[in-house]
Every structure is written in structure tokens, then in C-alpha cells.
Amino acid sequence: VDIPWVVKPEEKLKFDSIFDSLGPVGGILTGDKVKPVLLNSKLPVDILGRVWELSDLDRDGMLDRDEFSVAMYLVYRALEGEPVPMSLPPPLVPPSKR
């Protein structure tokens, strides 16, 4: 599938720097490291739960760099008033996971 990722390169840089600041181990952040960051958005927990469901693509309870970018993208869009989708639209799936 040849669709550009909706996470723009400049946004990815920003998300990557947040990711790195959280102290990933082996390129992966555990749920307990990501959770406070998402809670910090002040979005309702049920929304954040859905954001997690959509971004933890391999369902391992942890987020790698690309999964984290999906989570942050959804949080920022939600803060702008856009609804969080029930399932991940293809343009939001990181190219590395297709």
C-alpha cells in the first residue's frame, strides 16, 4: 500500500524526542512509562484507552518508536477536538507495520 504516513516528518521528530526523553529500553517504552504522558493530556481515560488500543499494533503492552508516534498523533488530534477513530485508518498505520 503506497499511502504516505499521516505523521509528518517534522511531527515525527517531535514525537521521537519525547519518546527518547522517556528512557526507552531496547527501543521500546513500557505501558507504565507511556501512561503518565498520555494522562498529562487531560483526555478522558476511556479515550486514552482507545488511543492505546489503536497504537499498540502488536498488542504487547509496550510501544516502540512508531507506535508511540501514532499514540501521540491521536492525542494531539483529540486535543484539537477530532474524534479518536474506532479502528486505525490505513494512512495512520506506520509504514514499518504494513
Binding site: D32, W52, D56
Partner: peptide, 13 residues
């Protein structure tokens, strides 16, 4: 830490 499968991989549930 988390059981395989199931929604307990979600720290918000």
C-alpha cells in the same frame, strides 16, 4: 508481566 492475548496489555483498562 502481561498475559498473552486479552486486553490486559492496555494500561488504561
Amino acid at each position: 508481566q502481561y498475559p498473552a492475548g486479552g486486553s490486559s496489555t492496555n494500561p488504561f483498562l
